[in-house]
Design a protein around this nucleic acid. Structure first.
Length: 422
RNA sequence: GUGGGUAUAGCUCAGCUGGUUAGAGCGCCUGGUUGUGGCCCUGGAGGCCAUGGGUUCGAAUCCCAUUACUCACCCCA
């Protein structure tokens, strides 16, 4: 226990950090290109924010939240997703008086008490955006196009974009009644889970994957076919805009996002090669959420992307990720006088912005060189008594193996110049 | 919440139907004449064989429980 990370969490070690930084930086870059600005929010919020925002009837709120009481008796919860917190911040900080629309992106960890599986963790990482104030279909299309551009820029191919509209509060009410009527005489034959859903949240039945229920659902009325005129019109405009910019999508009448706040356009990007947890990114519109949480009526739309799943997908597609540059130079030393000189040299190099690794173990030259090699240092330079006295040393190019004598005074300029030409 | 698989060195795994001091490759640390990496070779460190019980003269090996990991169902990012 003492030496084991809690279930569902994982360490991101030095060898993988380049991938994470690469993806995170790329995401930030693309977001800024669309006018989004980053925000950073607390990892925990008042429990009621999620109860209200995500929805009391959802699995997330009912059994997946990490909820605890602090020493002041407040009930707090580690965020199970990002949107609720952003909405809270939007209201609290009066962002409705910022230039509209307000475009925000974030890079967060989220927490859900779930059973572990490939691509599913209890602490996981999400990249996401939220767009407040724009209800036009252009907003939907732009948000989706941002995702597409992001995937493209990473070289990811073959993700399927699934689209659906789950209507507004009005058409949803009518649809729920319709669905109930349709299933009324079939309830006995449906799975236990679905029988509960009929009363709790009929739409969730559409997510069922058990064979028996699926048969009935094939004939069930699809919400998309029964949305009101406004919703239909909105959705058609969204798809038209996607076509205009050449984004391929599939209509999936079965998509019902698992959080209660969604309405209207919902979408997800799905992979086929990373296991059953194939949803790399999911999102949609949430026009009533801000009001529900106590803010002014404000339309909103956003998505969240699972970084672990994204990296799995990139790996499965064999996408290479550029790594951070190797250390410019390794400074080795023999003896105390040399070590002293190295300390000064290393300080000067680092002050000038040059990555410099020096010996701090007093090991043999051979051991030092091996270490320099493992670090991937581009150059190595060993200093002993001779070098201290002459002020000259052999600068070795680790790739070619060639070394040339240089005066130590010129070392910094030489490395700076070399770095520029490389 | 339901089911399946797995658990031996830092990593990937051997260890036959129970039998002495538990193995390999990689990695780590050393050396290969006293100041130069990669290839090759030498030596070394490092395991209460997940944990707790049981069977047995004897358990890494068989049985039970616990825990963890993992995959699928469910749900989702």
């Amino acid at each position: 226990m003492l030496t084991q990370a809690p279930k569902g969490t994982h360490d991101i070690l030095a060898d993988e950090i380049d991938k994470w930084l690469y993806v995170e930086n790329k995401f930030a870059e693309i977001c800024r290109r669309f006018g989004y600005r980053e925000i950073r929010l607390p990892v925990f919020e008042h429990t009621e924010l999620f109860q209200r925002g995500v929805g009391e009837t959802t699995d997330i709120v009912q059994k997946e939240m990490y909820t605890f009481e602090d020493k002041g008796g407040r009930s707090l919860t580690l965020r199970p997703e990002g949107t609720a917190g952003v909405v809270r911040s939007y209201i609290e900080n009066g962002m409705s008086s910022w230039p509209q629309p307000t475009k925000l992106f974030y890079n967060i960890t989220a927490y859900r008490y779930e059973k572990m599986q490939k691509g599913r963790y209890r602490e996981f990482h999400q990249l996401g955006i939220e767009l407040f104030g724009a209800k036009d279909p252009s907003a939907d299309a732009e948000v989706i196009s941002l995702m597409v551009l992001f995937f493209d820029s990473l070289g990811i191919k073959n993700l399927t974009l699934n689209l659906n509209s789950i209507g507004c509060t009005q058409c949803r009410g009518a649809y729920n009644r319709m669905l109930k009527d349709f299933l009324a005489d079939k309830t006995d034959q449906m799975c236990e889970n679905c029988r509960e859903r009929i009363n709790r949240n009929p739409m969730r039945i559409l997510d069922c994957k058990t064979e028996g229920c699926r048969q009935y659902l094939r004939e069930a009325p699809a919400l998309l076919d029964h949305v009101c005129d406004d919703c239909r019109d909105h959705f058609e405009k969204v798809t038209q805009k996607l076509q205009d910019i050449g984004i391929h999508y599939e209509i999936d009448k079965g998509i019902v996002r698992g959080l209660d706040y969604y309405n209207g356009t919902v979408f997800e990007f799905v992979s086929r090669n990373i296991g059953t947890q194939g949803t790399v990114c999911g999102g949609g519109r949430y026009d009533g959420l801000i009001e529900l949480c106590g803010g002014p009526p404000t339309p909103g739309i956003g998505f969240a992307l699972g970084v672990e799943r994204l990296l799995l997908e990139m790996e499965s597609q064999g996408i290479e990720i550029p790594s951070q540059p190797d250390p410019e130079i390794y400074l080795g030393s023999i003896g105390e006088r040399a070590e002293k000189l190295c300390e000064k040299l290393a300080w000067d190099l680092r002050s000038k912005g040059i990555t410099c690794i020096k010996d701090i173990m007093g090991r043999s030259v051979k051991a030092q060189m091996k270490y320099a090699d493992k670090l991937g240092a581009k150059h190595a330079l060993i200093i002993g008594d001779n070098e201290v006295e002459s002020g000259k040393a052999a600068l070795k190019d680790m790739k070619t193996g060639e070394s040339r004598d240089i005066t130590l005074d010129t070392l910094i300029d030489r490395l700076i110049k070399k770095r520029e030409t490389d």
